[in-house]
Design a binder for these strands. Sequence first.
DNA 1: CCATGACGTTCTGCATTGCCGACCGAGGAG
DNA 2: CTCCTCGGTCGGCAATGCAGAACGTCATGG
Lengths: 254, 254
Amino acid sequence: MPGPIQSLERAAAILRLLAGGERRLGLSEVSSTLGLAKGTAHGILRTLQQEGFVEQDPVSGKYQLGAELLRLGNSYLDVHELRARALVWADDLARAGGESVYIGVPHHQGVLIVHHVFRPDDSRQVLEVGAMQPLHSTALGKVLAAYDPVAHGEALDAERKAFTSRTVTERADFEALLEITKERGWASDIEETWDGLASVAAPIHGRRRVPVGAVGVTGAIERVCEDGHIRSRLVAAVRDAARSISRDLGAGPF
Amino acid sequence: MPGPIQSLERAAAILRLLAGGERRLGLSEVSSTLGLAKGTAHGILRTLQQEGFVEQDPVSGKYQLGAELLRLGNSYLDVHELRARALVWADDLARAGGESVYIGVPHHQGVLIVHHVFRPDDSRQVLEVGAMQPLHSTALGKVLAAYDPVAHGEALDAERKAFTSRTVTERADFEALLEITKERGWASDIEETWDGLASVAAPIHGRRRVPVGAVGVTGAIERVCEDGHIRSRLVAAVRDAARSISRDLGAGPF
DNA sequence: CCATGACGTTCTGCATTGCCGACCGAGGAG
DNA sequence: CTCCTCGGTCGGCAATGCAGAACGTCATGG
């Protein structure tokens, strides 16, 4: 494979840097962090700004991400086949289960949420489409780590941070967990990522049965669990939804 | 201003092209549309793919936008000050008015929706964050066109497409409309963009009173209107919310 | 069944392009 | 007032990425 384009790689690095830092970043911070000459970084930033990918605060001169990224990210969702097919099933699942529904795809050593249906009551909830979840502690992540070879390797190699006292961090324990997940066909997360929250997820398969994503339900542990286990009704609902979406995507029934 | 970086401009053009076309695009389509040599377009696409900005369908070889854009677009929202400050006010407005609330900023001859609160009932609604609305026919757009100098010029110069029979397309009529908007401090859209839907919007000002966005409410004409006019209760609620957000952003009270 | 075209991809030499480091003016802190 | 740091600019050099042709592959159709 011939060489990638240097300026593009650098531009992408700058965008990621801006996305990572919570606050706005100055030109010098950018150039020193990435080891670029100031002039070089400035040229890239100026072009990105012209294209709407970054914006500059007029008073401080500092840079942040631009609106065009939001527009393009939205367009990505429009083309996304998995999401399109899953819309109606996710809605039904939220209604039937009475809890929030998430659909995620593997991305960059994590799970990228591409769809989110609010719990069907009128409580305040923030939309999490575009957010990332860890592979090793969430139900969506574990399902993907169990079925997707790439995510599998990433989850094993990465550092498994303990978010709560129940997070599984040991490699052997985690591998066993993935084994179980694969055997029974679904994964759970009972207060392994957030205190008080539990979730269930099942894999979505595309054509030729490659895993393309996962669908899951998340809610307060009191509602989702019973005797320390996920309510079986919910597990069945999630697995049904996953199967339906997979069928829509053209996965064989075998 | 020294020259912008060619490869970045081209990459941005490719991304926009991919965002525009509904379906996936082949390499040849991309290169011929933009007048690039195939090899050149391929190099850019390969790099963009490596960085996660585009994805390639393994079977057809065609390209589409990538997941990284969704992640970055989401990060944009995190940093967005207007949106952060507006969250709670938008929620209150939706509750008080009983209708969907939208917050938009001027972008690329249109309004980019940066926040959207669903109507507080459990009907099916699709999230429209990241979507674009026209400047000349929507309440949000007219407010921005009236207050923001850049949007003003864009709205006057652009072609004003008639979406319904009530859309204002004549330049003189439109200018008069903006005049009224500026005088009374809010704009409406009664079936000028979508049949059966009406909306009201008011401007949000930042420091030094520059207009930075607009907040509006949209709903079925039967609920939002009365005797062919927007219900005054709703107008007051929207203007109150806009004032509150502006105050949060540091706009002077003068 | 082979010719044909279209496609995505690779290669290579050339010169355009964008990189670098030094240089400016402005603002802020001491 | 001076010094330091900031964002921004400039110009020369060569590395970089570009253009165009060539390749392998697939689907098509004669």
